[in-house]
């Protein structure tokens, strides 16, 4: 009886020990290395000058692989997304950023399209208004001609009566 109890206790303690060390092992296996999703979240905001128009997260060249490794290293070192983007911008130029900063000449990229759209819309509205005015003038011209015809008819009738 005692032997069974001791055996059970032993087995239970072994189980608890294994569970503890097992879970500790898992904890120790974890590190601070960033996930692929975290790396890709920044990568998709960068373009390497070697492969134009392909974001870093979708590019398979060696250059892009190296750049993604750099992002991973910087994230592991505790850098923020903005710090990493700034680093790449300083190192390789503003052109590597998917969204160039709104300053200096880059302002044109942000303000020109809506401004052009506004100017274009105004021009179209103006053109339509002008066309409508011209049509109205034409209509009134036509109605005047109708009136004139009516008067001509009346004069002709009266002249006939005179005859």
């Amino acid at each position: 009886m005692v032997k069974t109890w001791v055996t059970r206790q032993f087995l239970f303690s072994m189980f608890v020990t294994c569970m503890l060390f097992g879970s500790l092992g898992n904890v120790l296996a974890q590190d601070n290395s960033p996930t692929d999703d975290e790396v890709n979240a920044i990568s998709k905001q960068l373009y390497c000058p070697v492969c134009e128009s392909i974001p870093l997260d979708a590019c398979g060249t060696q250059a892009c692989i190296q750049w993604r490794d750099t992002i991973r290293e910087k994230l592991s070192a505790g850098w923020s997304e903005e710090e990493i983007k700034q680093y790449f911008s300083n190192q390789y130029g503003v052109r590597v950023l998917a969204e160039p900063p709104i300053k200096g000449f880059n302002k044109l990229l942000w303000y020109l399209p809506p401004f052009s759209l506004l100017i274009g819309s105004l021009l179209v509205i103006r053109l339509l208004a002008k066309t409508r005015t011209n049509l109205n003038t034409l209509d009134s011209g036509i109605s005047n001609i109708d009136n004139a015809d009516r008067y001509v008819d009346r004069i002709e009738n009266e002249l006939k009566q005179w005859e």
Partner: peptide
């Protein structure tokens, strides 16, 4: 040395 900001390569208009 590194081409910081890819300024030198841009001024030489290199293709690759």
């Amino acid at each position: 040395g590194p081409d910081v900001g890819t300024r030198i390569s841009q001024s030489y208009r290199i293709r690759g």
